[in-house]
Computed example of a mutant assay.
Amino acid sequence: MSAEHSAVEEREKHHKHEGPKKHIIAFIFSILLTIIAFAMVAAGEINTTFIYIFLVLMAAIQVFVQMGFWMHMKDRGHAFPIIGILMGVFVVFTIVIMAEYWAWW
């Protein structure tokens, strides 16, 4: 049992606990991004193409904030989940592009 206990202690030494400060900052940033997106849509007198591009940009930033801080993808040891997510994004984009191409012809 002592070997198991020392292995757990060794893992805990390498993994630093961030504490709530970064989570609170990420939460506030996420709320701020959401408020900005709602305000842009509520303004109403802005070009719709610009709003669409802006909303996609805000959503992409929101995804990176969520993945980095809430899912801890910025930490070490998350290579396989990141590769899986990137492969999923690649497959989805490929399907969307091929569906558009198929519908176009």
Results as ranks from 00 to 15, higher is better:
Met40Trp: 13
Gly68Phe: 13
Ile85Val: 07
Trp70Gly: 08
Ile82Thr: 06
Ala79Phe: 15
Glu45Val: 03
Met73Leu: 09
Thr48Gly: 00
Met73Phe: 15
Ser30Lys: 03
Thr49Lys: 10
Ile95Trp: 12
Ala26Phe: 08
Asn47His: 04
His15Glu: 07
His15Thr: 04
Lys74Arg: 03
Phe54Lys: 04
Leu57Met: 11
Val91Asn: 06
Asp75Glu: 15
Ser6Met: 03
Lys22Pro: 06
Ile24Arg: 03
Val56Phe: 15
Ala7Gly: 03
Met87Gln: 00
Pro20His: 05
Glu18Phe: 05
Ile95Val: 11
Phe93Met: 07
His23Val: 11
Trp70Pro: 02
Gln62Tyr: 11
Met73Val: 01
Lys74Ala: 07
Phe93Cys: 10
Val8Asn: 04
Arg11Met: 13
Ala26Val: 04
Leu57Gly: 04
Glu9Asp: 08
His23Asp: 12
Ile85Met: 12
Val56Thr: 14
Glu9Gln: 13
Val65Met: 04
Glu10Tyr: 02
Asp75Ser: 09
Val56Trp: 04
Gly84His: 15
His72Gly: 00
Gln62Pro: 00
His17Cys: 07
Ile53Asn: 07
Arg76Met: 09
Phe69Ala: 03
Glu45His: 13
Phe90Thr: 05
Ala42Met: 13
Trp70Lys: 09
Gly44Met: 02
Arg11Gly: 09
Gly84Met: 05
Ile83Thr: 10
